[in-house]
């Protein structure tokens, strides 16, 4: 276990940036989001969660993977290799770290999504424990422990005031630590004790959160029973059908594939898409989901029933972003409670 003094932050950002691409929570126009660091950016590790989840780093919103040229008869296809270097993603909260594993379950199962795999393998993830969980956090509903290193992260970090405690947990994490060890010190006995204090304090805070009692297991019954519940009519009425929840969500991972062309040549890219959009399932000969109720239901059924059936865990990490961002305050907590019979 190491200790990194906060006064060394500018130095370590610079140093990491020499060897890797560095992604950090960066403040711009009063808003904090993960972005690639460059000299002069304002790093904000105090803000608990970024507005948009960091999934963009492992699964970019748009990604070109094919170039083509066609004269109508002859066709040339060339796959586009990503040019990204190894990167460090620093300051990921537990909820977001777990969301990466949930997306892995889909993209890394056979047949493996090579674009994603490559990008994922190039990353070293440094998590940062949540010293001050917020009112709309409910990660504990999904057994996530914001005081601990989440499964899958390479280095776990805790904020101890004027320094962070730095604990490499994987081989990649060791490599990163060794590379920048000259900027760190060994953690003292006192640091270790402070860590335990902090972890206990976080645990207590999480217990006290207003949404701590939210429990997705209140949703019981067979898939079809839940699907046919009357609750969907009522809940979906206020949905505007925008994709704000989808795009800020750390676990939503549906995508579209589109071609962009100018003249004879062009590119094929994939990009985030939302099941909330009307043309999401539109085919040449019809659309199985023509109403917003059907689309709304799909999003929550996916997170709370379909994904769990396929992968054994809920596809929500309780980050609370949808609670904050839905234009009409409809969110997964309301859905869980209502499906569980509340209200």
């Amino acid at each position: 276990m190491k200790v990194l003094k906060k006064e060394k932050f500018p130095q370590i950002w610079q140093a990491i940036n020499q060897a890797y691409e560095l992604y950090l929570p960066i403040e711009k126009d009063d808003r904090v989001n993960f972005a690639q660091w460059t000299e002069g950016e304002t790093v904000n590790l105090e803000a608990l969660k970024t507005e948009i989840s960091p999934k963009d780093v492992i699964f970019p919103q748009s990604e070109t993977y094919l170039k083509f040229e066609s004269d109508g008869k002859k066709l040339q296809l060339e796959s586009v290799e990503s040019e990204n270097r190894e990167y460090v993603l620093f300051g990921v909260r537990s909820c977001d770290a777990v969301s990466f594993n949930l997306i892995d379950n889909v993209f890394l199962r056979e047949p493996i999504d090579r674009l994603y795999e490559k990008r994922r393998n190039k990353g070293t993830i440094v998590s940062l424990a949540c010293s001050e969980p917020e009112e709309n956090c409910f990660c504990s509903s999904f057994q996530i422990k914001p005081e601990e290193a989440s499964p899958g992260v390479d280095v776990a970090a805790w904020d101890l005031g004027d320094k962070i405690l730095w604990k490499p947990v994987t081989e990649k994490g060791q490599v990163l630590t060794q590379k920048f060890a000259q900027l760190m010190e060994d953690a003292s006995q006192q640091d270790q004790e402070e860590l335990i204090k902090l972890q206990n304090a976080i645990k207590e805070k999480v217990k006290e959160l207003p949404l701590a009692s939210v429990d997705p297991k209140v949703i019981k019954g067979e898939l079809k029973e839940i699907f046919e519940s009357k609750v969907w009519d009522e809940l979906s009425q206020s949905c505007l059908g925008c994709g704000a929840c989808t795009y800020i969500c750390p676990t939503c991972h549906c995508y579209d594939i589109q071609d962009f062309a100018g003249g004879n040549c062009g590119e094929r890219f994939r990009c985030w898409d939302s099941c909330m959009f009307s043309e999401f399932t539109l085919m040449a000969h019809g659309n199985p989901r023509t109403t917003q109720k059907q689309r709304f239901r799909q999003r929550f059924m996916h997170k709370l029933v379909y994904y769990p059936n396929n992968h054994g865990s809920y596809a929500c990490v309780g980050c609370g972003r949808c609670i904050e961002k839905c234009p009409v305050n409809m969110n997964i907590v309301k859905v869980i409670k209502r499906l569980g019979g509340e209200g």
Binding site: C254, Y255, F280, P288, Y306
Partner: peptide, 19 residues
């Protein structure tokens, strides 16, 4: 069945019927 399919490999998330 035939539904809207984009990726063909069970990832893009649009051809599902239930799970």
């Amino acid at each position: 069945f035939e539904l809207r399919m984009k990726c063909g490999v069970g990832k893009c998330g649009r051809c599902n019927i239930g799970d």
